[in-house]
Nucleic acid binder design. Structure first.
Lengths: 131, 131, 131, 131
DNA sequence: GTGGTCTAGACCACG
DNA sequence: GTGGTCTAGACCACC
């Protein structure tokens, strides 16, 4: 699992970690029973304070994505059945916001469709190298 | 100009206002010389503290999108030539992130293209009613 | 609302605060829309570090008992319909554990019933003075 | 003697073991001179690390409930005369806390008495099967 | 003034 | 080594 933290983003570091882990679980990169990287290890890897990673893991636990085994680490649970669907809906809403903005910049439908095809092409041809 | 503020978003309220005004300028909804709504009026309209609106306007001034006329209000300048292009690039990067996430959720290219067409259809057929 | 923190208890301070607030909400001492004491104020009142109170409030928010309004404070939501029932069941289970222990100490049914009546008497005659 | 360990409880595992053994002694299930299960055996039975069991036995020794016989194991001493009384007082205090909470949840005296009788009935009719 | 985030560092229970 | 809790103190956004 890759966790890239952007310290200059408005979205808090702990939420970025939460989302990265959720995505890894929802995309089946992390499966039920798998261990999360230890708090200290992920903290070192991402240059984040261990407390911040701990907060992210705590939130993930509250949301039911993982559970902690004291002295062992964090393990992932079976994700709630609807969470993938919810997450996809979220992402589509996000994309829709982007498309709306393009439309506001006086871009017509043809132009937008062309650019979207280009974007999809770029993403998919990238293979799965960063997945 | 419509300014929707999401108080639960991680992005600070003043940045949301800045972006909304920039978008209005870049989409030519606000043209050179037009007046911005007064600080107090926008504050009332959006349920935001006037100090926060003032900060947003101050940032817009620093970025060169508006200038203040004492006793009158804020007026919009000619936007820097490249700002529209930059903003479009930003939005496309944002959309690309979304597409990447869909791909991670084991969605194939056909599926993604289908959903994108639906999104574009939805946005464009919505006319310009909320633009 | 009274929050008594026992620093020597095994149960973490933040959980003691969570429970105290939940009890106040479930007993209608705090009603929908009421404000919680500010993080700093409760921290001072209870001699607890503000971060610890913040953690308790964060947990209460995750559980849906309260929500935060930035710059204002925390307000209580309408508690989930079943939470009172659940909490009563918890408490009864706790009492049952106690009764089981008394039974283990070779106390017979009559003796136990007698002591329980005494306990109830003591609690109820205490009026509502610390409620 | 039955030792049930709850790994998700806030009370430390070693304290749960201490209390279980004390209860067994105070309820005369374990009598003076009886041997405690070996550290390794109890560790296996409860899925607890042997170090943790060892710590529990060490605490029991400090409290005077058991003494170690090198090469043999741990044996129980005559429990201090007042310890049973103290323990009962502890348990009653615990029950009283529960009753207080029920009272806070706007339960009246009759209701509480009814529920207490039900609880006692349930516990006592359970025979001694888990004692 | 309010909450939100983050860091640094300590101590504990458990393996 | 693991996680869990708590403290102290800093900076930010917002009222």
């Amino acid at each position: 699992m890759r966790v890239d933290v952007d310290f200059h983003s408005d979205v808090p570091v702990y939420k970025q970690i939460v989302e990265a882990v959720e995505d890894a679980i929802l995309s089946s990169e992390l499966k039920e029973g798998d261990e999360l990287p230890s708090i200290r290890k992920l903290a070192l890897d991402t240059n984040v304070n261990p407390n911040t990673v701990a907060k992210a893991y705590f939130v993930l636990q509250s949301k039911g994505f993982v559970y902690s085994v004291s002295g062992i680490g964090y393990k992932v649970t079976k994700p709630p059945v609807n969470s993938l669907k919810d997450r996809i809906a979220d992402v589509e809403r996000e994309i829709e916001e982007g498309v709306k903005k393009l439309a506001k910049f006086s871009m017509d439908k043809n132009e937008i469709e062309k650019r979207m095809r280009l974007i999809i092409e770029r993403v998919m041809s990238n293979g799965g190298e960063d997945r």
